[in-house]
Amino acid sequence: MTRRAPFPESADLARLLLRTAVGGTMIAHGVRHGRSLEGTARWFGAIGFEQPELQAKLSAVVEIGSGSAIVAGAVTPLSAAAVVGTMSVAIATVHRPHGYFVTAEGWEYTGFISAVSVALAALGSGRYSVDRLVGLDRVGTPGRRALLAAGLGVTGAVAQLAAFWRKPAVP
């Protein structure tokens, strides 16, 4: 006799809640960048990006796109990798020198968003997702999905930093 969990949908609802929280946060950040591309570009230039206008546009697109995909539960490991990459760039360029706590501009928040994204990749997007609709929810093991999200995200961040970022000189 097969035993059923008392609330079989609770894990799927938890995944949906996590996806909505992380994805919604990314969408909000992307929209914020997009509403003020000129100001965002000035900020990217001030922190050392060589093509700040391009960085501002790409930041808005990647944050809105990855956030939307996370909320929808679409290609979750790749969507999570985009979030990890974005947060890794933020950690490296802005937050790491300030220590851990967000109250001192540290990397607490960006690290947390990255960790939750990797966990979502491992857990899978669940029943209420595009991945489930198209049969991608069972591709790969949880460990491989997490490794893909973390590895691809960090690799993308390193490539972006190598191509476009130079640490500003200390005045």
Score class of each variant (00 low, 15 high):
M1R: 10
P8C: 09
E9N: 06
L13R: 06
A14M: 12
R15D: 00
L16Q: 02
L18C: 07
A21T: 06
G34D: 07
G34M: 05
E38W: 05
E38H: 10
T40V: 03
W43H: 13
W43P: 03
G45R: 11
F49E: 04
F49D: 03
P52I: 07
E53W: 08
A56D: 06
K57Q: 15
S59K: 04
S59R: 03
E63I: 01
G67M: 02
S68T: 09
S68K: 04
A69H: 05
V71E: 00
G73S: 08
A74E: 09
A74Q: 07
P77Y: 02
L78K: 00
M87R: 01
I91A: 09
V94W: 04
V94Q: 14
H95G: 05
P97E: 10
V102R: 12
V102S: 15
A104D: 12
E105T: 11
W107N: 00
W107I: 03
E108V: 13
T110D: 14
F112P: 02
A122Q: 07
A122M: 10
D131K: 12
G135T: 12
R138W: 07
V139Y: 13
G140C: 06
L147W: 04
L147R: 05
A149Q: 03
A149C: 11
V154T: 08
V158G: 03
F164D: 13
P171N: 12
